[in-house]
Simulated scan of single mutants.
Amino acid sequence: MVQKKLHPSVEQFKDFVKANPKIIQEVRKGNTTWKELYEDWYLFGEDDSRWDSFREGKKPVIKESGEKKTDWIAQITSVIKKMDQNQMEEHIQNISQALTAVQGVISQFQRSPQQPGPQQANPPTSPFMFRKD
């Protein structure tokens, strides 16, 4: 049987899960999915506080309510640094094309009454359409 070679980041995630077996238990219990865990791991990294409850020999750390805003900003900055710029540009172009299409549809519905549409062409002079013989 031919085995596909996995992406290096997936291999790293697998190693991370093997080092923290409590993650496997959470998925088996149905509390979360592999996809959610992988996305969190990819965005936030292994050192994020989200993984504290899964680490061996450590108890979950409860953060103080007076957490500094700079930590939050640093987290967002690290997420932005990890984003693929080409992929983001492609998504922005798709959104732009979708907005252009929506604007076109809206402009068709907002025609002025002076510009009759194809169905409103010259109404008959008489409400009854009889031909004279």
Rank of each mutant, 00 (worst) to 15 (best):
Q25M: 10
I76V: 10
D71L: 12
P127F: 13
E89C: 01
S53A: 03
E46N: 09
K29F: 10
S96I: 11
V2N: 01
R111W: 00
H91F: 14
E26V: 03
K22N: 14
E56H: 10
F44M: 05
G30Q: 06
P60M: 02
A121K: 12
I92D: 07
Q85H: 07
Q97G: 07
Q3E: 11
V2M: 04
G117W: 01
Q97P: 00
M1H: 06
Q108E: 14
Q103W: 02
D47I: 03
K82C: 06
T70H: 07
K59F: 09
I23P: 00
D71P: 00
V105S: 10
T32D: 08
Q119D: 15
W72S: 12
K22S: 02
N122H: 08
E26F: 08
K58R: 13
P8V: 10
V105R: 06
E36Q: 11
M88L: 09
P21E: 04
I106N: 08
P118S: 06
G30C: 09
K35S: 05
I73V: 13
K18T: 12
I80T: 09
A121T: 02
S49A: 13
G30D: 02
T100N: 11
M88F: 15
T77N: 09
P60H: 12
K69R: 04
Q87S: 04
Q93F: 11
A74K: 08
Q119T: 15
L37I: 05
G66T: 15
P118M: 11
W51A: 01
L99R: 10
F13H: 01
F54S: 02
F128T: 14
I95M: 08
V17N: 00
N31V: 10
I23N: 01
P123L: 06
Q87F: 11
I76H: 04
W72F: 14
A74M: 14
R111H: 11
L6S: 05
I95P: 00
